[in-house]
């Protein structure tokens, strides 16, 4: 099942099992879940939300960069 992940200027496509949580996907792309909040198709979701396929997750950095 394809899932698209946008983080900073990067776009990553990966496959995930149906029912995979947002947190598992965040970890899969090498990001610490403590450092981002996530939008799924434009809506803020909790890390426990699951994906059903053909969705786009946007990871928004929350750590201060200066």
């Amino acid at each position: 099942m394809p899932v698209k992940v946008l983080h900073e200027d990067l776009e990553k496509s990966l496959t995930a099992e149906k029912g995979t949580t947002v947190e598992e996907i965040i970890r899969k792309v090498g990001v610490n879940p403590e450092t981002v909040i996530t939008e799924k198709d434009g809506e803020i979701v909790s890390n426990k939300e699951t994906v059903d396929g053909d969705e786009c997750l946007h990871l928004i950095n929350v750590v201060s960069g200066g």
Binding site: T35, I37, I44, I60, V62, S64, G65, G66
Partner: peptide, 24 residues
């Protein structure tokens, strides 16, 4: 926590300034 302030800001409709300082 910083992450919760960001969520609060987002839910309140504030614009998040995401540019990183060049001197970091």
């Amino acid at each position: 926590p910083e992450r919760e302030i960001a969520l609060y800001a987002k839910l309140k409709g504030l614009e998040l300034h995401q540019t990183e300082c060049p001197y970091v």
